[in-house]
């Protein structure tokens, strides 16, 4: 558990994750070329494998057919409705989880007694897989969006809450005492000491929560059948439209990339004052 947090708790130390960050500018065009080579090679392989019959095309349609199916979808309004529903569910769920987790995290984190009394409960509830709540969600809300929201909020909440707790406990005591000596009030200390100290952790929580929220959004749509991309995949699978299943999976992947890139960009922007982000620009 310690390491998990140790790693997650240092978002700024490796904010761009495995993303290709050009450490040496001279090498960056080379990297981009190699990356394109990789993507093109992958697509060619995908095209070739079903064509030469290594895997039958009814299981793995060639890349060109899948991309064509995706292209056809892109002009249909129902596709965009599904994307909209997915993004909406994800956004609302993440928003609720983020607001609740930040408020509770700051409140509980800054009062040691509360922390001590809630610790066992948090440690028990946190690892419960949110998919366990699927039957309850169906029972309560049927195939309404709220069903999926329940799963999303539960899963994303813990990711963010734990990070906020660590963030609040990581406040530099010297800074805190300095602020006190200079007569900063409770509110100012919260604004100028607690908030910036905890911000890297809050954003790490947001990044982890955003990814988990997307997974649970799609899961809910797939299993429960609330409207969105996951439900479309389920429908396509049941009508044996294989290339459509692949096309929609690519669409969810693109959505996932967009979420990752978006949250990382937010992280860099919100933490541009932070040593780690600045250090990276110098290097």
């Amino acid at each position: 558990m310690k390491t998990d947090t140790a790693e997650n708790a240092r978002p700024p130390a490796r904010p761009s994750g495995a993303g290709g960050r050009p450490r040496v500018p001279r090498r960056s065009p080379n990297r981009a070329v190699l990356g394109i080579v990789g993507v093109v090679g992958f697509l060619l392989l995908w095209e070739a494998v079903p064509r030469i019959g290594l895997i039958p095309a009814r299981f793995l349609p060639p890349a060109s057919e899948v991309l064509a199916a995706l292209g056809e979808r892109l002009v249909l309004p129902e596709f965009w409705t599904a994307v909209g529903d997915t993004v909406l569910t994800w956004g609302i769920g993440l928003g609720i989880a983020f607001a609740a987790a930040s408020l509770l995290g700051f409140a509980v984190g800054s009062v040691p007694v509360l922390r001590a009394f809630t610790h066992s409960t948090v440690e028990f509830l946190r690892p419960i897989p949110s998919v366990a709540l699927i039957p309850l969600a169906i029972l309560l809300y049927g195939t309404d969006m709220a069903s999926t929201l329940l799963l999303v909020v539960y899963a994303a909440f813990w990711q963010i809450y734990i990070q906020v707790l660590y963030g609040v406990s990581d406040i530099d005591p010297v800074a805190e005492q300095t602020a006190r000596s200079y007569g900063l009030g409770r509110l100012s200390r919260l604004r100028y000491i607690a908030w910036p100290s905890a911000l890297p952790y809050v954003l790490t929580g947001l990044r982890l929560g955003a990814a988990v929220a997307l997974i649970l959004t799609i899961t809910g749509q797939l299993i429960i059948g609330t409207p969105g991309l996951g439900q479309q995949i389920s429908v396509a699978k049941n009508s044996d439209a294989t290339e459509l299943v692949y096309a929609l999976i690519i669409a969810t992947g693109a959505l996932g990339v967009a979420v990752n890139v978006g949250v990382r960009a937010l992280e860099r922007r919100a933490l541009r004052w932070h040593a780690s982000v600045r250090g990276e620009e110098i290097a």
Binding site: A18, G19, G20, G35, I36, G38, V39, F42, L214, I215, T217, I218, T219, L222, I223, G230, I233, L248, I249, T252, G253, A254, L255, G256, V257, V259, N260
Partner: peptide, 15 residues
């Protein structure tokens, strides 16, 4: 392989 792997990572596994 990095771009391809990043894409695979971004696909929500339940699909």
């Amino acid at each position: 392989l990095e771009p391809v792997l990043e894409f695979f990572r971004a696909i929500p596994p339940p699909v």
